[in-house]
């Protein structure tokens, strides 16, 4: 299990859980970060910028702090 920041661009992963406060879990659940859902890291912005992800067909931007709290495993 790794966090989203450790995933290389272009790889598919599966959400395991979200570590963070209740508020964050809820917010991310709304956007499709539910256990078992598939995510692909499309690209990351330079200068330690955020990640652009493909979450169930929708493009979502996550800042690095948030991405760190999403635990995933490789498919």
């Amino acid at each position: 299990m790794v966090n989203l920041l450790q995933v290389k661009n272009g790889y598919w992963v599966k959400v395991v859980n979200v570590a963070g406060g209740v508020g964050m879990e809820r917010r991310l659940a709304q956007l499709g970060f539910l256990p078992g859902n598939k995510i692909r890291v499309i690209r990351s912005a330079p200068f330690h910028g955020p990640l652009l992800l493909d979450v169930e067909g929708r493009e979502i931007v996550l800042g690095r702090g948030v991405a760190r709290s999403v635990m995933v495993e490789y498919l």
Binding site: G20, M24, G63, R64, V66, S69
Partner: peptide, 10 residues
């Protein structure tokens, strides 16, 4: 704050 959470529009 946790940081950026945003949907990218087409």
């Amino acid at each position: 704050s946790p940081g950026l959470i945003l949907e990218m529009p087409v």
